[in-house]
């Protein structure tokens, strides 16, 4: 065993390095946000957009101000919030299930949300007073049902990672089948609407959705903060975490509900978004390690970066139009994942 001594203060180099990484990806995210606001199918002048951002009552013209403030800003902020939510949901899913392939998709929440939206569109249901909220509410409700199904099974058989993964996969297949059934039964024009929702698109974003999804994100983050060290301990295995004083089933149950809420809050308004919840945590873990105090913000930033990057790509792929972002996330995410598999250290995933 090497026994060289190290006179450096405790953890300085590693702590500094990961803070630098956090700063670097935050800066990158800042640029991506700006680029996403500047780019759009309306081909607005960059300086007009900047002027509308900085001084809405200035000389950019009402059309530019309206496009920037009513369309582009909510879309960009929604991409950021959805990405951050899915990044955090993904990293927590991988932590509590001890499974590198886990993501908000794994337990069928996204599939259930898709089914809830699809069946509402199929039957043309509308909520009284707030008809525009029908689809998001149905998606949220269906995701909650999926959450209760997985939890119910886990509650009966024991809140272990293995039981939750199995119950989640069963739930995923159930809601995917129900989604397919709804699509099979739908008339062509209704089917088009369902498919558009399932693709996931930032065009559905509004200031209201930004407010709701953003509140859910902040609420869940506040719930996670007291458990950050316990979640870090979980990475050493259930038994060792328990020996350190962590009530593992209680922690797993609590975080499971937080992940459900985060996922439902993210996908209810914009539709199914894949890959972000799987890839963002891995990228974050490779750069900043597994201390959840840094890993959670890094996963949120990477999630936001992937979503905003996908939003930019969705506008550039077909000039004058916006391709649904749900299609693009995989296109952006797959190269990241391949690079991770080819270059990453096995330990990180």
């Amino acid at each position: 065993m090497t026994t060289t001594t190290n006179s450096a203060p405790a953890g300085v180099s590693f702590a500094s390095r990961r803070l630098l990484w956090l700063g670097a990806i935050s800066t990158l995210l800042g640029f991506a946000i700006l680029a996403d606001i500047l780019i759009g199918p309306a081909f607005l002048n960059v300086f007009d957009v900047l002027a509308a951002l900085v001084n809405p009552s200035g000389a950019s013209g009402p059309m530019v101000v309206t496009i920037v403030h009513a369309i582009r800003l909510p879309m960009t902020l929604m991409a950021l919030i959805v990405g951050a939510s899915l990044g955090i949901a993904g990293v927590q899913m991988q932590t509590i299930l001890g499974n590198p392939l886990a993501s908000p998709y794994t337990l069928g929440f996204s599939a259930a949300a898709g089914f809830g939206a699809a069946i509402t569109i199929l039957f043309g249901w509308q909520l009284p007073l707030i008809p525009q909220m029908t689809v998001p509410v149905a998606a949220f409700a269906a995701a909650s049902v999926a959450c209760l199904m997985v939890y119910g099974l886990a509650h009966i058989r024991g809140v272990t990672a293995e039981v939750m993964v199995l119950a989640g996969i069963a739930t995923l297949f159930l809601f995917q089948s129900l989604q397919s059934l709804v699509q099979y039964l739908a008339a062509p024009e209704v089917l088009q609407e369902i498919v558009f929702w399932l693709f996931g698109s930032m065009l559905k974003a509004s200031w209201f959705s930004v407010w709701v999804s953003g509140s859910v994100l902040l609420f869940c983050l506040a719930l996670l903060i007291p458990d950050m060290w316990k979640l870090t301990a979980l990475r050493l295995g259930d038994e060792r975490a328990a020996s350190l004083g962590v009530h593992v089933p209680r922690l797993r149950r609590r975080v499971f509900f937080i992940v459900s809420l985060l996922t439902a809050g993210a996908v209810a308004f914009v539709g199914t978004i894949g890959f972000v919840g799987l890839v963002a945590p891995h990228l974050a873990r490779m750069l900043v390690g597994e201390d959840q105090r840094i890993l959670i913000p890094a996963s949120a930033i990477f999630g936001g970066l992937l979503m905003v990057g996908a939003s930019i790509a969705s506008k550039l792929l077909s000039p004058g139009a916006v391709v649904p972002v749900g299609i693009v996330t995989a296109l952006v995410g797959v190269p990241f994942l391949f690079a991770l598999i080819l270059t990453g250290k096995r330990r990180h995933w």
Binding site: A10, A233, R235, L236, R240, G245, G289, D291, H348
Partner: peptide
């Protein structure tokens, strides 16, 4: 022995001893 798959640092592992 556990933790063979973890990328937690040695210092973080020791700190977890006083998790509370």
């Amino acid at each position: 022995d556990t933790g063979a798959q973890s990328s937690l640092t040695v210092l973080e592992v020791v700190l977890l001893g006083r998790l509370r």
